[in-house]
Amino acid sequence: MGFTGLARWVNAPTSGLQLVRDNIALNHNGQYRGKWNLSVRSYRSTLGQIPGFQIPSERTMCALTMDENVFVLLEDPLAPTRADVLAAAPPGQETAYLQSPTHFRTTFLTLRPPGALEQLLAQLKARWVSVRQSASSVPQRGQAGGQQLLIEGHIFSIGSDWLVRVGNVILAGGGIKGMLLEAEYLPLPALHSPIADGTSELLSNLLTSVLPNVRDAKTVAVTISDTQWEDVLWDREELEKGVQDPIHDSPEASEDIYAYGDEDIPEKKRGDWIGVDRDRRSAYLIMGALRSEGIL
């Protein structure tokens, strides 16, 4: 698995999926590899319904199912962001200040198997309700409703270096709300873009080329900077572990004439675009794009 870029074709026609498929086959000699199926559900807390308990704004939660993993994004608008806490911390006190909040504005989790989240909410009788369901499938309290939103499409390979995923965004009522296009460059697990928002010219050019020549097509690149992604991946437990058990330089290694100096460098950096980390980043971008349009 490699570095991935995502784009949104907002006003794609109902025939857009076939148009993209034809373009990939004719102009890129692309090969069909399989189906691309994702499902997304969103929830809202109901803490304000507790007698005597008032809050200005409820919490929200989105859950995207991709293969055997479920990626959950929780947001509490009343909690501070990690950047806010760091900005308020005096120099040298950043670590201590990060321990103060019980949680930050966003929390990003990976769960498995699919369906476990709904079972947990039902067993705990948690104050979360599924939102934006179609009128015919409104769930009863404590019951899991049907899938709210689907992304259905195809996966193609272009040569040996590229995978391209294209899919329609299908609402609960069956209507199509544009398309998502994802390009994955397999040779690289990470690609640090010089552009501040994390946009990669290599991926942008590929995504642009697979789009059919349709008049007035409205496309939007979906990106996240490395700094923002580090905030998403921040782990309090890992930070506490690092403070309690710091790594010291080994005097034996420094005196060893055969030491290369790279013994402490991890083979795999946390957040590289491989394995479940690639899927996490992809899921985060997809949910962010749909939420920004008010679809979730």
Score class of each variant (00 low, 15 high):
47 L>F: 09
2 G>I: 06
142 G>E: 03
287 M>Y: 01
292 S>A: 13
155 I>S: 09
127 R>P: 06
230 E>L: 05
228 Q>I: 04
90 P>K: 03
190 A>Q: 08
278 R>D: 03
116 A>C: 12
228 Q>E: 12
79 A>N: 11
211 L>D: 05
115 G>T: 15
134 S>P: 12
71 F>L: 09
266 P>N: 02
113 P>S: 12
105 R>H: 09
65 T>N: 04
85 V>N: 10
118 E>K: 06
114 P>N: 10
285 L>S: 02
84 D>C: 10
253 A>D: 11
194 P>C: 05
51 P>T: 03
139 P>K: 04
213 N>V: 07
217 A>G: 09
137 S>W: 08
241 K>D: 11
119 Q>D: 13
152 E>R: 14
250 S>R: 10
8 R>L: 13
195 I>M: 10
129 V>M: 01
122 A>K: 05
32 Y>H: 10
251 P>R: 11
154 H>L: 13
261 G>V: 03
159 G>Y: 01
213 N>I: 07
125 K>Q: 12
89 A>G: 02
6 L>N: 06
183 A>Q: 00
241 K>P: 04
134 S>E: 13
89 A>F: 02
6 L>D: 08
105 R>E: 08
229 W>M: 04
82 R>L: 06
152 E>A: 12
214 V>N: 04
104 F>E: 09
56 P>K: 07
207 L>V: 03
74 L>M: 06
72 V>P: 05
267 E>L: 12
118 E>R: 03
203 L>S: 04
132 R>V: 15
84 D>P: 02
247 I>R: 10
182 E>C: 08
277 D>S: 14
209 S>E: 11
135 A>F: 14
103 H>Q: 13
78 L>R: 09
290 L>A: 11
268 K>Y: 10
144 A>K: 12
201 E>H: 11
15 S>E: 12
74 L>E: 13
144 A>Y: 05
239 L>I: 07
